[in-house]
Write a protein that binds this DNA or RNA. Structure first.
Lengths: 255, 255
DNA sequence: GTCTAGAGGTTGATG
DNA sequence: CATCAACGTCTAGAC
């Protein structure tokens, strides 16, 4: 911990904040403040008790007592300004897009300054791309006898996730989505149209997703397209076994 | 401030956290921890210094030193568990979807407990809906002689932002978007298709947005759809004048 | 409660 | 550096 002040006056709080803001410190300010934002949109937030966090990369968060998301924020601040008399005015300006967040503190309860060291990266499984790879690894996840021709095939309408052929030698366009919606259906339709044009033959379109809603499924049916459900757990499992084998290879090569 | 402990042992940290978690307090824990998540996806995060915030509605945030967004999180936690021996294990479980976040603290620097009072609501201008309203208020923003028939018209394919007729009595489907992209085009196409089916007549589709990119514009052209630019500032201005008149009315009624 | 689409989205990958 | 699409998206609103 770099610094911790309890119940400072406005002056002292301003000093501490000014000292650490715009430097690679994490500053947590608990206090009573109001917020004005102007930029891509415009907002105002009346006085209330909030937790303000200024991160080491200058990200700014203004959290109320509830919700995952901050009430106001700025992903990256280019210039800071601290002013004080009766109140503490903290201004955070971003250049592109041109945006400003103004915090006006009437009272500051605590200011806590730390310098976090965190070199670990999040390892996440279950991305859409993990599904692609699982399918390429094991096309039977989608359908028996399916043969993958190409992944990320480029067409004038965009990239096809997986391009394949079924046992009856029909072309199959596969669109993978974690969270499919109506638009996904049209996207798939467009790829199918493209491929039908290109190969002048009937083409199947399959939407592969870990979940589906009735309405989107209906819409898919209307378009003569198909749906195959994949279990996210299967995907993660297949991905992990793949990952393990790679790790083994790596450690082997290190010997 | 409800409680503030500096450099507590694992035991003491566990006690404080256990006392306040699952109650309407905001708990900020700075310390060295690792995180495992399993649910819709699966992730692991090795040890690092982090700021963990548990909000009064049970939202959980695990922030690293950088970025707007937390490295791990849970928007709403249903049950908490605190265990401790050499390490502090904090488990946050959510029932729907079934997800668990596990935090393992090796060291706790500070625990800060507050109870934030914040009854103010964010007043935000610049939403997409502000554009809808401006258009309804003044359809000429989009095109001379345009008459709005309906806003938020329901179709089997979803909701049409603004449904209108042009001076030549053609139906016009308007999709409003702050940040239009390829999906927006598909979405508009979807609505146009629906309306063409329903009324068995030619239907115009107009994308109204404060900005546009060349590629999306091309894509729009390909689909035979149109684009009209609106200035966000005009929209905010028109909305504010509307809002001001309402405010005036309110203060008037308070007299 | 489920479904739908927006968000000051943010972020990371890609050309 | 701009563009594009995913996100453990989250969240509010409509039905």
């Amino acid at each position: 911990m770099e610094e911790l002040v309890e119940d400072p006056g406005i002056e002292e709080a301003a000093e501490v904040i000014e000292r650490y803001v715009a430097r690679p410190y994490t500053v947590q300010v608990n206090g009573l403040c109001s917020v004005n934002y102007q930029g891509r949109a415009k907002s105002s937030l009346d006085r209330g008790e909030r937790l303000v966090v200024i991160k080491q990369d200058s990200a700014l968060l203004v959290h109320g007592p509830e919700n995952y998301q901050p009430k106001n924020w700025q992903p990256e601040v280019d210039s800071w300004n601290v002013e004080s008399d009766e109140e503490l005015l903290l201004t955070a300006k971003r250049n592109d897009p041109d945006e400003t967040v103004e915090l006006r503190f009437e009272d500051v309860e605590t200011v806590l300054v730390t310098q976090m060291v965190d070199r670990s990266e999040l390892k996440l499984r279950g991305h859409e791309i993990d599904i692609h790879e699982s399918i390429e690894e094991d096309p039977e996840l989608v359908e028996e006898g399916l043969k993958v021709i190409e992944r990320e095939r480029k067409t004038p309408a965009g990239y096809i996730d997986v391009f394949a052929r079924d046992p009856e030698d029909r072309y199959v366009v596969i669109e993978v989505k974690r969270n499919p919606d109506y638009n996904t259906v049209l996207q798939l339709q467009r790829y199918v149209d493209e491929i039908e044009d290109e190969f002048a033959s009937e083409v199947r379109g399959i939407l592969v997703a870990p979940k589906m809603t009735d309405n989107v499924l209906d819409y898919l049916d209307d378009h003569g397209l198909e749906f195959v459900e994949v279990e996210m757990e299967d995907v993660i499992a297949s991905y992990e076994s793949l990952d393990d084998s790679q790790t083994e290879l790596e450690s082997f090569s290190e010997v």
